[in-house]
Design a protein around this nucleic acid. Sequence first.
DNA 1: ATCGGTACCTGCACGC
DNA 2: TGCGTGCAGGTACCGA
Length: 260
Amino acid sequence: MPELPEVETVVRTLAPHLRGRRIVSAAFTSRFVTPGNRRALARRVAGRRIESVRRRGKFIVIELDRGTLAVHLGMTGKLLMDGMSGEHTHAVFTLDSGVLLYDDPRQFGRIEWCPARVARLGPEPLEIGLEEFIARLRRHKARLKPLLLNQAFLAGLGNIYVDESLFTGGIHPLAIASRLSAPRAARLYQAMRDVIRLAIEHRGSSISDYVDADGNRGEFQLLHRVYGREGEPCIECGALIRKIVVAQRGTHYCPKCQKR
DNA sequence: ATCGGTACCTGCACGC
DNA sequence: TGCGTGCAGGTACCGA
């Protein structure tokens, strides 16, 4: 489900509820979402005060008065403030005011204590400068689609926003990163940032079940230009949008607008 | 360094 | 109606 714009939306809706609250107790029930000692994790967070909630890549980073909790939503994870717990609720945080639930049917998400993964993330797409972006592209002989999905290269893009960014930049998903000309790299940079900013403005994409911390859906899915539009005419040129498989992921592009 | 394949887990749409 | 198959916003790990 969640890529940078969705996680950003969750953080924005969650932060006002959580900031300054105290975690009275926590209960974790999934060996997948919370690998390792779940009781120990519950003891660690119990009694802690929430200092801040922020996003790093696709992680939700919750700073406590002692320690840091990181939540990754995987494909179907949801953090719900005062929501209804159900059969896929795998974590319950009882606060001094309100209850925070973690819901995740597929259990690809994780709730972890100070995970090393966060430190290994690449730069934020909205923070990296053009020069550095181009310099980093030059260092990789990889194809753009898998490279942009690589969180160590850039943190936060996922399948939807890579496809949308490549389309907006007019660049083929199989193009080789190190061989992109500077003008084309600059177009990609601009496109990626425009797409992400617009998606955040529209509170992310709700394809099937994504909702923010208040249970509201996003609406950027209405503005997708290639993702999920295989066989439909390109909005720019009318050619039919194609879907291929790259890096085991469905990859949507316009064969006319996106030349290799 | 990069790639393809597999694995983790559940739900849903589809064809028969 | 039921069943098998493939696919889904994510990441980690393996061997080549």
